[in-house]
């Protein structure tokens, strides 16, 4: 369980995170989405006590991270893949981290095996590919068998096989009842992995919703109808919340009605249909739409303000 309350972080005049409140529940994978520079990494660093919030509070499993006696057992984190001394072997890196909380050597071997680095564990981490670095980062996150797992962009640099592996790993971690909090800037990836979404833009919360809900709300589904009787069908479908457009003869794009409703109406009026298909707007488009709004939301007040001052000066 992760709880952020009015979390704010300023670096000089720049606000990285502003008044961010959310809760991440155990048992599901929660995606932390936002464009680059939205404040995801800063938020994660504050969760781990690496950065001190300017104001607000971050609590993990009921306490501030730093107040846990055995933090690696509470929270396993990978903030950036390259939080590893390049001159040290993967094995020794994990062994040193494990030693801080008395985790035995056998567990180090276990996590190495788990992430598939057994062949290179005795090689220096400086020579690792990005994907191997990610796997090592995930190994260190799992070292303490933690109740909460925080991963910053874990699929970065992984090949398709690795991405699938992470996806399954995250789901199995959540299925075991753990809190799994994963950041990404890729909506498509999160749609496959996460059940819940926390979306940020410019350091502010934009949405805190389930993936299902997000998809339903953010995208207006349309139905494509191909029929030789387009004009007659259009007349029958018209209603208060219905919009119908037609870009080519014999094809209608209907929003505000489900394909079932359209199909029934057509049957009632004995209109022949050649094609009836629901078209879902892409999640990526919906996500971009949403975060673009956040950017505009930030930009517009400033512009309005300058207009106002110009107005009063004139």
């Amino acid at each position: 369980m992760i709880e952020a309350t009015a979390l704010t972080k300023r670096y000089g005049p720049k606000t990285a995170v502003e008044d961010l409140s959310f809760a991440v529940k155990p048992g599901v994978v929660t995606g932390f989405l936002g464009p680059n520079g939205a404040g995801k990494s800063t938020t994660m660093r504050m969760l781990l006590g690496l950065d001190t919030p300017t104001s607000g509070r971050a609590v993990v499993n009921g306490k501030s991270y730093a107040d846990h006696a055995a933090p690696l057992h509470e929270v396993g984190a990978m903030l950036e893949a390259r939080a590893i001394h390049t001159g040290r072997t993967a094995f020794n890196h994990l062994l040193a981290l494990a030693a801080t909380t008395g985790i035995p050597r056998s567990r180090v071997d276990e996590v190495i095996e788990l992430v598939g680095l057994a062949d290179v564990a005795k090689k220096r981490a400086g020579g690792f590919s990005l994907g191997m670095g990610q796997r090592l980062g995930i190994a260190s996150a799992l070292l303490g068998d933690p109740a909460t797992v925080i991963l910053d962009e874990p699929v970065n640099g992984l090949d398709p096989e690795g991405i699938l592996w992470i996806r399954n790993l995250l789901k199995s971690l959540a299925a075991e009842g753990r809190t799994v909090f994963v950041s990404s800037h890729l909506m498509s990836e999160m749609a496959l992995t996460a059940e819940h979404l926390i979306i940020v833009g410019r350091g502010r919360l934009i949405a805190d919703t389930s993936v299902e809900e997000f998809t339903r709300q953010a995208s207006t589904n349309t139905v494509r109808v191909r029929t030789p009787d387009a004009e007659r069908l259009r007349e029958q479908l018209v209603g208060p919340d219905v919009t119908i457009t037609s870009e080519e003869a014999g094809v209608l794009t209907v929003s505000g009605l489900s394909s079932e409703q359209i199909g029934r109406t057509a049957a009632e009026h004995q209109v022949v249909l050649f094609e009836l298909a629901t078209q879902q707007a892409s999640l990526e488009e919906a996500f971009m739409e949403l975060t673009r709004d956040a950017v505009e939301y930030q930009a517009i007040p400033a512009a309005t303000r300058s207009n106002v001052t110009e107005g009063t000066a004139a």
């Binding site: 006696a69 276990e110 788990l114």
Partner: peptide
Amino acid sequence: GRSADSTVSAPTARSGKV
């Protein structure tokens, strides 16, 4: 995903104070 279950959690990762 299921096969990963058994290995992620392990009794060898006992809790210990820093």
